[in-house]
Amino acid sequence: MQQFLQQLVNGVVLGATYGLIALGYTMVYGIIQLINFAHGEIFMVGAFAGLAMYSYVLPESMQGNPFIVLPLVILAAVIVSVTVALLVERYGYRPLRRAPRLAPLITAIGVSIFLQELVRLFYPGARSQVSFPRIIEGPNLELGGVTIARTSLFLLVVALALMVALQTFIRTSRTGKAMRATSQDADTARLMGINTDRIIVLTFALGAALAAVAGVMQGMRFVSIDFRIGFLGGVKAFTAAVLGGIGNITGAMLGGFVLGIVEAMTTQYLLGSAYKDVAAFVVLIAVLVFRPQGLLGERVAVRA
């Protein structure tokens, strides 16, 4: 039982990261029906940008103080990730917006490889794993026999706060309404005077910012990162997005948590760690086959 609870907690924390990345997939898909395959690499780039801030910009005297370090690391990650995402949108996807679906997908693959290699070749030491600072130090918390690292607790709080903030933004703000309108029908939204290009850019930026935060979290939790984290992280987050119902924001978060828990449980009880990545793929395939609209998605009528 204790073990079960421990895995549940692990799964939820893992799922928070997946959920944050999944939001980027789901928002972009909702707006322009594009699977932004390179989104996983945005997450990876964010992690490295945060690390670069810590190791190369911050003076050593400040590195012990989490109240200075954490905001600056996250800020650096967000700035770099958003910049990269916007460049990719502007020069990779936008020219292809009306091309057949295959074209942007292949561009996305090209961008993925490019970003991975860029980091591998030019970030010092990134050819193998690079260690990441824990930032938040201190003993683990014990709660009824379940161990929770301080970092994990912090991650969970931040992730939930961001998700709530995003929901509120999209539900209530003017821009949020414009985003929803664009996702319903981009052409009509444009006729209604919404600058859809701006909305698309904003969507990419929001998704990238969340992925950057997720990247820093991933680093803090596993205390190391490498240039390959984007691929698996991306695929799993995409799975989470599909699981929740792609295009659905609440769904992406829910999907993230469910996937995290499933992964933690199967690793513990079913397959062992050698197959932990298989779990995600099996979930993905099962969802797509049996409930392609996802947990919260609605079935959309096919127009003839």
């Binding site: 990779g92 292809l96 292949i106 561009t107 090209g110 993925s112 490019f114 970003l115």
Partner: peptide, 10 residues
């Protein structure tokens, strides 16, 4: 190779 993919599709 990554660059080539992007450029050619474009």
């Amino acid at each position: 190779f990554g660059i080539a993919l992007i450029v050619i599709i474009r």
